[in-house]
Design a binder for these strands. Structure first.
Lengths: 195, 195
DNA sequence: TAGACAACTACACGACTGTGTAGTCAAGCC
DNA sequence: GGCTTGACTACACAGTCGTGTAGTTGTCTA
């Protein structure tokens, strides 16, 4: 939250931080203003209302994430993206977006539905075996969001910050381990499908 | 919320319902009292404070879930439990517990850590391939909780209530599909592990 | 130099929060 | 009968919330 940002940008960054940590209702405009080092009146002057501030944060986070994605693809090409390299910037944005989705914000929910749609298409064209691509994609999507929304619990279980290099590596490897081996045998799967 | 329950039980059930839907901070004691059909003073008379009410709900939900699990194992044996049969009763309790975990309640967080511990042991004894059982179990646990905490989003994507028979079946089958086939090839997994 | 206008602050408002207090009412016991 | 006790309600209190309003400052420009 450096001083060379405009007050408007500092307010927006503070809002993204506190909304992420406490949820929309849990972060008051007075807290956000204090975090940004301005009066609550100035927040109101720049954004009009708490709801408008939240919308501005949503759109900023969404556009910034898209821009980051494009930059990365342009720079290094799609096939050899290093997850670790984008993490420091994209992580707070993803965390905010996950929380905003949970709180039902319009822009965030639209992005979620779009992601589910994309995931379903991906599954179709990549040989995923299911007869309900939408459900498959939706469940994957909420499970992924769970990691962001329940970050505190995850860190408690791991004993370290998942934004730290080692914590992030442990989480990433766990994902790889989970999604590279089947947890159910074909027989177990068939049995469960009968219920 | 039937009338033949004691007022204390009605308040507790109403609290579990509203805490689940709106989170701890989002549900006021006046709303809970109204949902239970009593005055807010009576809520206070029975539970002393909002915090104590939340603790009572935590312990009730935990004990009830344990009891349900025991009953089920005693009745039908471990190997042929039908998921659908316990769903109507256990679902609200799990939803409440997930939300309470997210809100950082002590009893709920303790249960979460216990679950992660149990999951790690399960992975060890069931041939899961990973060199960080705790991380593996923790990530699985938060992903599973994500489904409860982000239930609204999931239902929006599916277009139906996941407590409905068809919605619940779609979700369960998606889980089966996801966890019965690897999403990453061994080569992809090895590449990601190098990051 | 005067005026316009954006950036910014201070303060008061009504609504809602959890909590505290006083009191009513009916059932059980001496 | 009187008396205690637990279930229950009504209401007031202080604090915090989002919002509204009035006013100050500084900078650009006609």
């Amino acid at each position: 939250m450096s001083e060379d940002l405009t007050a408007r940008a500092r307010i927006r960054d503070a809002a993204i931080k506190l909304f992420s940590e406490r949820g929309i209702d849990g972060a008051s405009i007075r807290d956000i203003a204090a975090e940004a080092g301005v009066s609550s009146g100035l927040l109101r002057h720049h954004f009009g209302s708490k709801e408008a501030l939240r919308q501005a944060c949503d759109e900023y986070a969404r556009d910034r994430m898209f821009a980051l994605g494009r930059e990365l693809v342009d720079e290094v090409g799609l096939e050899n993206i290093s997850l670790a390299s984008i993490q420091p910037v994209s992580f707070p944005l993803q965390t905010y977006m996950a929380r905003s989705m949970m709180d039902g914000s319009e822009t965030a929910v639209a992005l979620f539905l779009q992601t589910v749609e994309y995931g379903a298409e991906w599954a179709k064209t990549h040989g995923v075996v299911t007869d309900d691509y939408r459900a498959w994609s939706a469940v994957i999507a909420v499970m992924k969001l769970g990691v962001f929304v329940l970050r505190d619990l995850l860190e408690l279980a791991l004993g370290e910050d998942i934004a730290s290099p080692t914590g992030y590596a442990r989480m990433t490897r766990a994902f790889v381990d989970i999604f590279s081996q089947p947890l159910l045998t074909p027989e177990q799967a068939d049995n469960l499908r009968k219920d």
